[in-house]
């Protein structure tokens, strides 16, 4: 067989004429991976009860749940951006003792089963929680069973995706641009705002999209922390899960709505934000 160097050379010589060959050891697993990811979605489409779909979709509960999902996922993404980008900057651009540990802790919600995350949120921010009891006593704010609670649960689960993505981009970005800005008299914050942010915009966009998608599909932390009540805390994934108990056809229809909406939004955003201009 040809060595990698030969393949590379062969590829290079072919660029002028025929299209570049994709090496088989990459092509086969790539296609398998694609098929693996798409097959369940295709099965969902095949088994969709198309004839009863209009009936399933005209029930007001579906649109309530969808609206709530979109509003909460977007709010959670906004909150993640406000808190997550500075956090990512801190992790990537400053030195402090225990930074490795902090970085590991930030990614903790990724490995925590979402239901456990929900219980942890209750213990922290619930009516009787470590912080929550003071929120209740001082401001009369209780977060569980509210729409705000949904946003908080989704932010908890989704923000690490944003932080990791932005931190990776920051590490890849050349810090000398910022240093140059600062030698020209910019403060560190101005350098961040005027130089770093535009530089890492694609990474922020990618992270935001990831966080949004994760928040949209969030189930465990939401139902544990915010409960399930139509038009207040019942997002699409909760509606899908509960529909599945009684009426799998309705659950498939609901999933389809969620998928269609998210694919539409993601495709639109990807084209606008994430293609190199």
């Amino acid at each position: 067989m040809t060595s990698p160097a030969d393949t590379l050379k062969a590829g290079r010589t072919r660029t002028n004429g025929r299209p570049r060959m994709v090496p088989l050891p990459l092509l086969v697993p790539a296609l398998l991976g694609l098929a693996f990811l798409l097959l369940p979605l295709i099965a969902l489409l095949i088994r969709t009860p198309w004839s009863t779909l209009p009936d399933q979709l005209t029930s007001p509960g579906v649109w309530q749940a969808l609206r709530l999902s979109l509003v909460c996922a977007t709010a959670a993404t906004a909150l993640s951006l406000i808190l997550g980008v500075p956090l990512a900057w801190l992790l990537a651009r400053t030195e402090f003792p225990g930074r490795g540990l902090v970085r590991a802790l930030v990614t903790l919600p990724l490995v925590l089963p979402p239901v456990v995350g929900g219980v942890a949120l209750l213990l922290a921010l619930g009516r009787n929680g470590v912080v929550g009891q003071w929120l209740d006593a001082w401001f009369g704010i209780t977060l569980p069973f509210t729409t705000t609670g949904v946003v908080i649960a989704e932010t908890f689960v989704a923000m690490p995706f944003l932080v990791i993505s932005v931190e990776g981009t920051l590490r890849a970005a050349d810090p000398r641009y910022e240093e140059a800005a600062m030698t020209l008299g910019a403060s560190r914050f101005t350098a961040f705002r005027r130089v770093t942010l535009p530089l890492i915009a694609p990474g922020i966009a990618a992270g935001a999209v990831l966080a949004w998608a994760r928040a949209l599909g969030e189930f465990g932390a939401t139902i544990t922390f915010a409960g399930n009540f139509p038009d207040r805390t019942q997002t699409m994934p909760l509606a899908v899960y509960l529909a599945l108990q009684n009426d799998p056809a309705a659950a498939i229809a609901l999933s389809l709505v969620l998928l269609t909406v998210s694919i539409t939004v993601l495709a639109a955003l990807r084209d606008r934000w994430m293609t190199p201009s």
Partner: peptide, 21 residues
Amino acid sequence: TPVSYEQDVKGALTKVELKEA
């Protein structure tokens, strides 16, 4: 009118155990 319709009985019980409901 409850504050939540839980997905299973343990979920409902947990809410009281944690004093949220």
